[in-house]
């Protein structure tokens, strides 16, 4: 079969982007290869690990389990779109302050999932909620202890608390 090329347009981190992709191109590959936004990672092939999580229209999505063409017309936020200039987003800052990352590979997905958790659950998160809500994100380095602390602290900071 001849490659079925589609053009896609979307807003990524506030900027309009477009591209030509094969139908089979996954959103994560469009982000990484076409847009060179390589902060979004691929850690598995069964939609389990969450290293590829981005926000699509404000909701966390595994970008390895969505076609690029499905994101046509959508608003996306990736890890590269969070900081305000040189100032880290409060969730990013919380991960740094709480040593919520080691090798850094799962970190972008963790942070994007954390934002979705805050959106749905608010700024005052208990440990059990955070642990349950992170079930779609796997980390091999941290044992999650400091990630959980970071998400709680980041949530609080996003609400204006510290």
């Amino acid at each position: 079969m001849a490659a079925d090329k589609q053009s896609v347009n979307m807003t990524v981190n506030g900027k309009p982007v477009s591209g030509e992709v094969e139908s089979r191109t996954l959103l994560v590959h469009f982000l990484r290869e076409n847009l060179r936004l390589t902060g979004t990672h691929v850690g598995c092939d069964t939609s389990q690990c969450g290293a590829c999580v981005v926000l699509v229209n404000g909701k966390s999505v595994k970008s390895c389990t969505m076609l690029a063409v499905q994101a046509d017309g959508a608003e996306l936020v990736t890890i590269e779109g969070l900081a305000n200039g040189s100032e880290l987003h409060p969730m990013q800052q919380a991960f740094m302050d709480n040593h919520g990352l080691q090798c850094g590979f799962c970190t972008p997905g963790m942070i994007m999932s954390a934002l979705d958790i805050v959106n749905r659950n608010g700024n005052d998160l208990d440990e059990a909620t955070v642990r349950k809500e992170l079930e779609g994100n796997i980390c091999r380095c941290t044992g999650y202890h400091n990630i959980v602390k970071a998400v709680q602290a980041g949530a609080k900071a996003m609400g204006g608390g510290s």
């Binding site: 902060g39 691929v42 880290l88 991960f95 740094m96 590979f105 972008p108």
Partner: peptide, 14 residues
């Protein structure tokens, strides 16, 4: 941390 938090890490596949 900063480069990882900003999505600016540089892994082989990147």
């Amino acid at each position: 941390d900063r480069r990882f938090l900003l999505g600016k890490g540089r892994y082989t596949d990147d």
